[in-house]
Amino acid sequence: MSATLTLAAPLAAPPPGPDDLRIEGLVKRFGATEVLRGVRLRVPRGQLCALIGANGAGKSTLLRCLLRLVEPDAGAIEVLGEDARRLRGRALRRLRARVGFVFQRHNLVPRLSALSNVTHGAIARAGALAWHQALAPRALRAEAMRCLEEVGLAPLALRRAEALSGGQSQRVAIARALMQRPEMILADEPVASLDPAAGREVMGLLAGLARQRGITVLFSTHHMEHATAFADRIVALRGGAVAFDCPAAAASPAALERVFA
């Protein structure tokens, strides 16, 4: 295991608020393999935190555990002041609705339009009216169009998701997350499937919108340049535990390289 590097330097802007995310001793096993081994992490409100680590380090599992898309085995998770591990049914769905999740593979419904995919972001509060853009009331459609405008895709509102490029699809996925009116966004390698130019563009969009709205973001990435350019703080996972935690501005290339060694 590489040396844990926790720098005492203050975080970059914005100043830390109350913690939106608190994780203590998080453990997740898949059979005999322990993927997360007592992860401890706190993310204050409004912070953009990059999660880095080699393949299999546990980044995706950690992000999924936070919304219980994967069930953790032990530990405590507090998301937006809610004890995520104790929630069931409707209460869990309410918490999920407050957190936007952007997946590596956008996960849009391919046969539906970009607009319908964006209205899906309101499914927890609008119910059946958000199943399809044609069912949505005027205000909901207008809000979905505004979300599409923010990601620059309003002209393609009625284009099927399966006809969009990778970068466009990921923008629609971000618009869907915005439609949730999220207080926090979790993004699991959101630009992994995009070419470098599109990746930087999408990452910049996500970070810019989050800063503008004061949304807390925890995103995983393999791109060190994205971590240093867009995040306030970098946390590295190695072997299922936090191996490195420092402000992005203070992260040295050598320390970052050691995470993947």
Partner: peptide
Amino acid sequence: EALAAAGAPRSGLLMAA
């Protein structure tokens, strides 16, 4: 999974995805 992560109930998963 994306809809479940957005807080959709089972009926939402069925109808929307």
